[in-house]
């Protein structure tokens, strides 16, 4: 028996395979699903409906479904893996959500910031976006300077807990 947890739109579904049967949240579910080519195009038959679905895997545990113009991301975890996994013990930080240019840094090392406070401004694709603190914290280090080009996920500030 294999158990998976699948999260779509913040809703979690538990999928269990038992021999030739599949259960979602404990209920048996039938799936009429036909691959149409080798690059991810599928036909999903639902009663009298024929729905075109494109499936791709942008990240190891994430699948992307395109159904018409809708785009749904599904996070998949094998449940026995989740039990072994421990939360990563990395220091909290604020990172660039996308590549861009640091326009300004609005805090200094040692400042305390409150949740939602704008700490830096990043310019990307001709737009300025405000980077905000996700929690109350103290600024441990400022890791970039205004005018600097940053990559996606590059750390901008490191934070430490308020004492």
């Amino acid at each position: 028996m294999s158990l998976y947890s699948v999260t779509i739109n913040d809703r979690e579904y538990n999928v269990r395979f038992n021999g030739s049967q599949a259960f979602v949240n404990g209920e048996p579910v039938q799936l009429n699903w036909t691959p149409l080519n080798t690059s991810g195009l599928h036909l999903l038959r639902r009663g009298r409906q024929a729905v075109e679905v494109h499936l791709s895997q942008p990240e190891p545990e994430t699948l992307e479904f395109l159904i018409g113009s809708r785009r749904l991301l599904a996070r998949v975890e094998a449940l026995h893996q989740r039990l072994r996994k421990r939360p990563a013990a990395s220091a909290p930080q604020i990172a660039a959500p996308m590549p861009g240019l640091i326009v300004s840094i609005l805090v200094q090392e040692g400042d305390s910031v409150t949740k939602g406070q704008t700490v830096a401004v990043l310019e990307s694709m001709k737009m300025q976006m405000q980077l905000r603190a996700a929690q109350d914290a103290r600024v441990a280090r400022v890791l970039v300077q205004p005018g600097q080009q940053v990559d996606k996920s590059q750390a901008i500030l490191s934070l430490s807990p308020l004492t």
Binding site: S2, Y4, V6, I8, N9, R11, Y13, V15, F17, A22, V24, N25, E27, V29, L31, W33, H42, L44, R46, V53, L55, Q57, E61, L63, F65, I67, R70, L72, A74, V76, E77, A78
Partner: peptide, 21 residues
């Protein structure tokens, strides 16, 4: 927010789990 479509999501969840499986 997008209208939830529980039956479709259940089927997609199953398809996703099959991929992992």
């Amino acid at each position: 927010p997008a209208e939830p479509e529980p039956t479709l999501e259940r089927e997609l969840a199953l398809a996703a789990a099959l991929v992992a499986h």
